[in-house]
Write a protein that binds this DNA or RNA. Structure first.
Lengths: 188, 188
DNA sequence: CCTACCGATCGGTAGG
DNA sequence: CCTACCGATCGGTAGG
């Protein structure tokens, strides 16, 4: 009882689940409190507002994913290998924490403005930088790296969305080789 | 003044714009009425509820796009040409009516369950059927047509989203050849 | 105009 | 004495 960290963790996981399912606007503080099993006022012991809770969840998840992508980008490997590793990263995030993946997808519009502009913290920038360097090294054709990033992200995101909607089934990691192949074909 | 069709049309266009900008949950009936320049009660002369208005806008736009995709699919042309024509369809919808495009994108989750299951009314089904027939004719490799549809839709949708967010600029139709090329490379 | 629900805040309490 | 949590309630805004 003295340690609120368990309650805090449950607030985060239940809020993430509800936000991913019904959107932030569609989720009330009452919904979250009921799912956690505490009074509404208890939430305000841990987060100053619903919006701050949403923002905190987004920025934390987004920054971690971005850091993972940056780490792949900084290695000295062929671009094709890097693409495969980033695809695996996204697929595993989807399979292991679908709520977080969905939430990052749909909360982008609300919170992307809060993301620091530096290449470190931004997933799209991190993906784009991988392509920028590949172009500089002559490994892929010369093309707007923002467009290449869009193609790659779309090729991963849309199958993920189809899986959420039940149009595709099974873990996304099983499709990772297909997705890597598609990205490589689309950008080379 | 006696003819309410002008008011109805303005309700539809203003609601579409606001729904696309701020989401359905983030848009109040008061917002819509203020944008149209009528009292809130006037909206209820034309639509029984906000949800019905949202559903009507979605189903109408979705059905029209689906019909256009079906029309391309039913022609006797090489698959590569069909892909190019469907890409043009999406790009032109985005450029000419971005509000509708954005709204269809973000309201899918809420209203996709209301779409009739038949191949006629469903955009994804229409795209999928084009690939299914191409596989039957041996024009592209044998692969889950749902996955191929996801790849193609992701390759168009993500650059559109990047354009909305300001990461890409200019009309999407200018990128149509690139997108067609990317889809063809990814699915062949 | 009505009713339902929203986010947020209050003073109080109880385990440790 | 501290603080995580509670029940009750606030003013405001929503759809209808």
């Amino acid at each position: 009882m003295r340690d609120g960290s368990k309650t805090r963790a449950k607030i985060e996981s239940e809020a993430l689940r509800l936000f991913a399912e019904k959107g932030v606007a569609g989720t009330s503080v009452r919904d979250i409190a009921a799912a956690v099993g505490v009074a509404e006022a208890a939430l305000y012991r841990h987060f100053p507002s619903k919006d701050a809770l949403s923002r905190s969840l987004f920025l934390e998840g987004y920054a971690r994913l971005a850091a993972d992508v940056v780490a792949v980008g900084e290695t000295q490997q062929p671009i094709e290998t890097k693409i495969g590793q980033v695809v695996d990263l996204f697929c595993r995030l989807f399979d292991d924490n679908r709520s977080l993946f969905s939430f990052l997808l749909l909360a982008q519009h609300a919170h992307l403005a809060d993301v620091p502009e530096g290449r470190e913290g931004n997933v799209v920038e991190a993906v784009k930088n991988i392509f920028t360097r590949a172009i500089e090294h002559g490994d892929i054709r010369k093309e707007d790296p923002d467009l290449l990033a869009a193609l790659a992200l779309g090729i991963v995101a849309q199958p993920a969305i189809f899986t959420i909607y039940g149009r595709l089934s099974g873990p996304l990691i099983a499709r990772a080789p297909d997705l890597t192949r598609a990205i490589w074909a689309a950008v080379r």
